[in-house]
Design a protein around this nucleic acid. Structure first.
Length: 955
RNA sequence: GGGCGGUUAGCUCAGCUGGUUAGAGCGCCUGCCUUACAAGCAGGAAGUCGGGGGUUCGAGUCCCUCACUGCCCACCA
């Protein structure tokens, strides 16, 4: 650790001296600030009283609540988290600085399967197992693990400076949240919307639990389609040939189905077949689901192992024979195959069929197979008893189903208003499409880690008792022989309730009144259905019963869990590949942060976060933004250096000028009025961009302002004003004050994007004693200075003149350090807001300094215009540099020729349009006018350039 | 099988409801250690906006079509 850093750490409160190191070293400051923000509870939000709230609203502000999508307790921070958090932090800091009551709520999710797997792995390495421990001990063990390692990701988040209210941190298995989850379950059960039943569900044989449709990922695979001949009973040489991709399941067949209209099988329906390898007999049935043109047109029906077959089985009252156990090994029903893994059994079944001559044609066949999202094991459809939420069922007594309510929340109402707005809007359609086709949600999981289902089964009457408090006896027959359901709830059930439960639901709390609905949800599309959709369903459902503050019934618009959803992109690697552990291309944000600094990484993500496109994270970009941070740092060094120098000369910056938005008067020099105008435009644009989640626009805008305008031009010009040998004390003081004020404003503007750097420099601006504890609590700049566009035009003219002069210097090979005289002929043909002569004279020093000109001589009206100089046309005037070195004729010829060609092309296009009567008649006046002006300018420029080329040839 | 995106400079991406000569960063070329910054400064080269057709006074922008590419959803054995 460098000496200075060490010293800073020791005096953490007021560490900012003005002797800043030459290069910005984020590592030297970031930890200190991250810790400071947490320790000082800077982002803690006290629930406001009614009066406070009223006051807040009276000033045009409001409550801004945002919920952190809770990462898994098992999680480590990845780039996706960092993008997500950066966006939320930018918005939260921005809203907070604008005066809103900004509450960002953090927490973690218990993540049922993931966490259980983690601990089970640990147990395995210790030579024991979940089963050996028993349920109670195992759960205690998971809690222990959670206490130990569960905070990792939030610690990383603290380090990144996320401005969340840590005092409100929650965990989805906290006591109060568990009570709420149980309440929600009981209510839904009482409303008849949670039911228990035996159906085919997706089963992961490795995790040994049911999983929902969403947790199954489909993959295309080339497999085989086998034809198997089933002999017809009573007709020795007759067969029905079925086609299947899963021959091993034939052991559980209870029928063969054909389409009722299929002529090939007309006579067979109703007949009996002998199921090979088992000897069982099964009927041939007719069902319209069967497609005659697929395979052989005859389908084996295995109700216990396929959802379609299950449906057929229901229609035809077929038995369901389960031939596999929960680990996907064949069970006793599979006879000789019992104990075999499903794929081993498949091989054996095929061999045996082959041996009996019952195997027909084998074809290649592409189909998609479902795999467990978590462990990629092939999912086995399994017939089992599970708990479901009836999302499409209307509640007793009428009303909308959960799904319908969730659709209404997103669809525009009759007045075109939407209770929840998606950005990008496209996701609204995706969401509705899904919600339109939603099936009942399987919420039971055969795990030990999670919210245990509050249902008890009576041994005596077999009835189920669901209760808020653990019951002692059966609610139906009074028997004490009751046992609690062993299953736990899907993790997403509890996280789907978060928007209400974090504020104390089911109790009607003041927090709910104040903070619900939350304003915004920022998340990736990957959990649109898992979480976003479930929150909308459950949030709308349960909050409808909560009256508003004034006691009135809560309308849908106030029932939604959030008013807006911003869906961000996926972070990919530099080659647009999805980051994954197996590919080994995962970029660890912490490693990048350590290398470039948090601010640079945040800025990278923000600047690349344009809606709709994935982010190909490139380190080159981050390197660029580290340079940007360094640029800001050095601008600060320059400013502080001048502040100190001025102090020595008895000039003090007027500190009253700081904290607002600089607004120079009409008597201020051009560059001051110009930079103020630019700053104000930047402020306006950033506020606008952030309000529509255009982080990229906002970031680019401030980058452009700070580097392109403030550093490249304003700082260079202001050096002149701070030169005490030529500038008056008054002039210097005004310039310095303006300089510091613009810089201070820029820091506040930049703060949501780069909180660390700006905090450090902001403290330094105020010599360690700023007006508030943190820049994050200062006011965000707002646009209110009346910009004079003419100042911007004037400055652009000067800049253009300087650029042309610089270019000419290069062309003539004038050494960088040498100053040369410049001749100027003002173009009287063109019309400017200010007389060009005046503009140039008044800003002579600027031109001289920035273009390294020793003296400017006006050669207007053709007088004293010397021969042998090379005239160049700038917008404001023609200029020539006096230098003995001759120009490089071939190079200059090429340049001029190119220039002429370009101008000719432009002119031709303008002329063509202006000669078009239809254009003149139909185009708006401003467009025509603009084109005319441009045409005139082009004509003059072309003439001059042609002449220059001619002179070059003659010389 | 449905649906939704994307295709603009060598690379990564902007370009709002069609309007004057299509932008940025990185990279590249040239010259500079100019007393804030070589993580810098100054200057420069570079695009027939995926192909084709249409609407329009005017198309990167709207429509049709084709190609390539990515993603989401789906119970065809």
């Amino acid at each position: 650790m460098p000496e200075q850093t060490k010293e800073m750490t020791e005096t953490a409160e007021k560490p900012m001296r003005r002797e800043l190191p030459k290069a910005y070293d984020p590592a030297a400051i970031e930890d200190r600030w991250a810790e400071f923000w947490v320790r000082e509870r800077l982002f803690h939000v006290e629930t406001p009283s009614a009066e406070e709230l009223e006051k807040l609203r009276a000033q045009g502000n409001d409550v801004f609540t945002i919920l952190l999508p809770p990462p898994n307790v098992t999680g480590r921070l990845h780039m996706g988290h960092m993008l997500n958090q950066t966006e939320m932090d930018i918005l939260t800091r921005w809203r907070r600085m604008r005066g809103d009551l900004a509450l960002w709520l953090p927490g973690t999710d218990h993540a049922g399967i993931a966490t259980q797997m983690m601990v089970e792995r640990q147990l395995t390495s210790e030579g024991t197992s979940r089963e050996a421990l028993g349920r109670e001990k195992f759960v205690e063990r998971v809690w222990e693990w959670k206490r130990h390692y569960g905070g990792a990701i939030l610690e990383q988040m603290k380090r990144l400076g996320a401005s969340v209210d840590w005092s409100r941190e929650y965990f989805t298995m906290d006591e109060n949240l568990s009570v709420a989850v149980r309440e929600a379950f009981v209510r839904l059960y009482e409303q008849g919307l949670i039911y228990r039943g035996a159906y085919i569900v997706n089963w992961c044989p490795r995790c040994q639990t049911a999983i929902s449709d969403l947790e199954v990922v489909h993959e295309e695979q080339t497999g085989k389609l086998w034809e198997i001949r089933y002999p017809v009973v009573g007709a020795e040489n007759e067969f029905v040939t079925v086609a299947t991709t899963r021959p091993e399941t034939m052991l559980g067949d209870t029928a063969v189905a054909v389409n009722p209209l299929d002529e090939r099988y007309q006579g067979l329906v109703g007949k009996t077949l002998r199921l090979p390898l088992t000897g069982r007999t099964i009927p041939v049935i007719a069902d319209e689901w069967v497609k005659s043109d697929f395979g052989t047109g005859a389908v084996k029906v295995t109700p216990a192992h396929d959802p379609n077959d299950f449906a057929i089985g229901q229609r035809h009252k077929l038995a369901a024979i389960t031939v596999m156990d929960e680990t996907a090994h064949m069970n006793a029903e599979a006879g000789a195959y019992a104990g075999l893994d499903r794929y081993v059994a498949r091989k054996k079944v095929l061999e045996d069929l082959e041996a009996q001559g019952l195997l027909g044609t084998v074809r290649e066949h592409v189909n998609s197979i479902g795999k467990c999202d978590r462990c990629k094991t092939v999912v086995e459809p399994r017939f089992s008893t599970q708990w479901f939420i009836a999302v499409n069922k209307e509640p007793r007594g009428g009303g909308d189903s959960m799904a319908e309510l969730a659709r209404k929340a997103v669809r525009a109402d009759s007045e075109g208003k939407k209770a929840i707005r998606f950005t990008p809007e496209m996701y609204e359609k995706v969401y509705l499409e899904w919600m339109n086709n939603i099936y009942d949600w399987c919420i039971s999981r055969q795990l030990w880690w999670g919210h245990r289902i509050p249902a008890w089964r009576c041994a005596a009457c077999k009835e189920i008792t669901v209760a808020r408090e653990d019951p002692e006896k059966c609610a139906h027959c009074g028997s004490a022989e009751i046992k609690q359901e062993t299953d736990v709830l899907d993790t997403w059930f509890s996280s789907g309730l978060l928007p209400v439960t974090v504020f104390g639901w089911p109790r009607h709390t003041r927090d709910l009144d104040v903070f619900y609905p939350t304003q915004l949800l920022v998340t990736g599309f990957d959990i649109l259905f898992f979480w976003v959709a479930r929150m909308i369903m459950l949030g709308c459902w349960f909050s409808q019963g909560l009256p508003l503050e004034d006691g009135s019934k809560r309308p849908l618009g106030e029932s939604v869990p959030f008013r807006e959803v911003y869906i961000h992109a996926l972070v990919r690697d530099a080659d647009r590949q999805k980051m994954s552990k197996t590919k080994g291309n995962v970029i660890d944000p912490i490693a990048i942060v350590e290398q470039y600094g948090t601010d640079a990484v945040r800025f990278t993500l923000a600047s690349m976060a344009s809606p709709g496109t994935d982010i190909a994270f490139s380190e080159a970009r981050t390197e660029g933004y580290r340079a940007f941070a360094n640029k800001i740092w050095n601008a600060a060094r320059f400013i502080f250096m001048n502040v100190e120098r001025a102090k020595e000369a008895g000039i003090e910056v007027d500190s009253k000028a700081l904290g607002g938005v600089p607004s120079p008067g009409a008597d201020a020099p051009l560059e001051a009025r110009w930079i103020a105008a630019e700053l104000h435009q930047t402020v306006e644009q950033i506020n606008q961009s952030l309000s529509i989640y255009r982080f990229d626009d906002a970031a680019n805008c401030i980058y452009q302002f700070f580097w392109g305008s403030f550093c490249d031009w304003y700082l260079e010009i202001v050096k002149l004003r701070l030169d005490f040998s030529t500038a008056s004390a008054e002039e210097a003081k005004a310039a310095l004050t303006m300089l510091v004020a613009v810089f201070e404003t820029a820091l506040r503007l930049l703060s949501p994007f780069m909180p660390f750097l700006t905090e450090e420099l902001w403290y330094a601006v105020y010599e360690g004693d700023p007006p508030s504890k943190s820049i994050a609590l200062a006011r965000y700049p707002a646009q209110h200075y009346r910009i004079d566009v003419r100042d911007i035009v004037r400055m652009h003219m000067l800049q253009d003149l300087i650029r042309v002069a610089r270019e000419e210097r290069k062309n003539r090979g004038i050494p960088e350090r040498e100053s040369v005289p410049m001749l100027v002929t003002v173009s009287s043909e063109r019309n400017f807001e200010t007389d060009p002569n005046t503009l140039i004279s008044e800003n002579k020093k600027i031109i001289q300094s920035l273009a390294r000109i020793s003296a400017i001589r006006f050669c207007n009206a053709g007088d004293n215009r010397p021969d042998g100089v090379n005239w160049r046309a700038a917008a404001l005037a023609d200029i020539a540099l006096v230098h003995e070195k001759t120009i490089d004729v071939p190079v200059e010829r090429e340049r001029l020729t190119r220039e002429v060609a370009k101008l000719e092309k432009n002119l031709a296009s303008a002329e063509r349009q202006l000669g078009n009567a239809a254009f003149l008649a139909k185009a708006p006046a401003a467009v025509v006018e603009g084109l005319r002006k441009q045409e005139a300018e082009n004509r003059v420029l072309l003439e001059k350039t042609r002449k220059a080329l001619e002179e070059l040839e003659n010389a």
